[in-house]
Design a protein around this nucleic acid. Structure first.
Lengths: 321, 321
DNA sequence: TTGTACGCGTTATCAG
DNA sequence: CTGATAACGCGTACAA
């Protein structure tokens, strides 16, 4: 390429990176690059500059629409900054998450946004020791000293239960995902607190095997075997939609017989029938903020860790009165 | 690292790549690697071996559940072969697709699976000239001479219309996405052919602005202004679910008053209410086959281009009688 | 402003 | 079987 343009390799590099050069030099280089449809090799560039201009987003399950929302948000922020996004699915096991974080040391990406389902000391340790910046989209202890952006589940639960109480519902049940996960634990605590705050007693609780539609289908009958709720709060939209299916099969009308509320306010909420009232935990904003935090830390590795909390809102649709 | 183990860099490389070495040598190297938690830098490795062990999947819209299915399938195949997957969203414009394909020359990935919404000569040209192997998940002319795995939309439409006719429905309408897209064109043609084959006349057709839920919500009323169908075939699941919303708003029962059929048989089909009868165009299998084709071509660049067609099946659920 | 020369960390080659 | 060394293609001091 350099000799095709009749100049030095250094000049090619300078022109293509927008550094000062005489117009005629720039012209010669661009002309030759166009001619040969030459583009700098990103592998060599990565080795030299120590950056890949790639970022990784790790989520547990791409089939969960909340991660689609988050992915969109992260993608738009990092793309605007000139980065590609590598989306990785970790699955539910924390060991896989730890392996992923450790693997970042290979240097195939310049940073990581991870939304872990389960967190243990190993994971926190691997994040702290990671070669590249890591931002956690989820809850980790403040003592971990890592950048974090998380939702406010308890407040979200307050919104949900308050809305139901105002509608006159009193026998409120709760469908959670696994309580040994970070979101599962937060939602369980939040639900209990919210019920207490409003002077209500839970009409029943069930724990689905995971946060999927199938798990919700299985958990619904278990819940309804022992209780006759007039409202059900679900830990996410997939579970809520699954519960509406179970209720329909039993001839129960939503929202007249039983009101249903989901969490995440994902695209599924407006697509479901009836459209699902859902607590918006700010997944798009969390994704955006997490990406911004990551970019900022890449710029300046010494800045103090930030912990951002995104506040929830309630999107009222037709599954509640 | 080499001097930490007291051996040469070459030996480190050999041991870590599983090449023959004396047990004691292997031991020294592994011990030191463990100690320093050393992992080979993938940037340098990429530069040297000319491979990144990364593949790219380009889709139009990550919010479309059919791409989630495809993504899962591609991911599992390439991961098993030791590759990472980079998911890129191209949007609806062909120029962005062309830019993406051209950009592959930078060498940040070893191959590309692209599912283009619109195809023109520029795109085909860029694919043929691409530095790295490209597999198209979709339809391109055989003359293009590229690896392809596509669905059989006409046959899928025959399945859909045949199912409706057998149920006694005669006033069948069609909701398509943009007809200037590859899937839009294929489905329009397929629907027309299928109707003719069964001796039926279309009860109306409307073209949504794109393949999204919102576009379906907007297109539904337009269709129903001029016609009173007893069945509606939709070009994908998102449009079908949107149509069911529109029908419900007008007090029309699905499937008693109007039957609805979607295409893609995505996760949304079983999550919708009523569960959506949908033509399974084999998105998972298409993803799997496309990934396999790509891996095979990376192994052997000289093999003849293959054109795979995946056959559809019908998943009957509750939105049809 | 432009060119020359070096080094990034790894793998492949070749001599020992 | 091991060690020394030459690339891979780029960015960048430094010299001109």
């Amino acid at each position: 390429m350099a000799r095709a343009a009749g100049v030095s390799v250094a000049s090619v590099s300078r022109v293509l990176n927008g550094q000062p050069a005489t117009p005629e030099m720039a012209d010669k280089v661009r002309r030759a690059a166009e001619e040969l449809s030459y583009v700098p090799d990103s592998r060599a560039r990565s080795l030299k500059v120590g950056r890949t201009f790639q970022l990784t987003l790790a989520v547990a399950d791409v089939g969960n629409p909340v991660y689609v929302t988050m992915m969109r948000a992260v993608e738009s922020v990092v793309a605007a900054a000139g980065y590609r996004l590598v989306v990785t699915t970790t699955g539910p096991d924390v060991v896989d998450e730890v392996a992923l974080v450790r693997g970042m040391a290979r240097g195939y990406a310049d940073g990581l946004v991870i939304s872990p389902l389960r967190v243990d000391d190993d994971l926190i340790k691997s994040i702290r020791e990671c070669e590249v910046p890591v931002v956690v989209a989820g809850s980790v202890p403040a003592s971990a000293g890592v950048d974090t952006v998380r939702a406010n589940s308890p407040k979200g639960m307050t919104l949900a239960v308050g809305h139901l109480k105002q509608a006159g519902r009193k026998r409120i049940a709760f469908v959670n995902g696994p309580a040994d996960t970070v979101p599962g634990e937060a939602r369980a605590r939040g639900f209990a607190e919210a019920m207490k705050k409003f002077g209500l007693t839970p009409a029943g609780t069930v724990e689905a095997a995971d946060f999927t539609f199938a798990a919700g289908r299985a958990a619904g009958p278990k819940l309804l075997k022992h209780t006759w709720p007039d409202a059900i709060v679900c830990a996410n939209d997939l579970l809520a939609v699954a519960l509406m299916h179970v209720l329909a099969e039993r001839g129960l009308k939503v929202p007249d017989d039983v009101a249903v509320i989901g969490m995440d306010d994902s695209e599924l909420a407006e697509q479901s029938f009836p459209p699902l009232t859902s607590v918006n935990l700010g997944s798009a904003e969390r994704g955006r903020r997490a990406a911004e935090l990551l970019l900022a830390r890449i710029e300046d590795a010494t800045r103090a860790p930030r912990r951002i909390v995104v506040q929830p809102t309630l999107s009222v649709r037709r599954s509640t009165p």
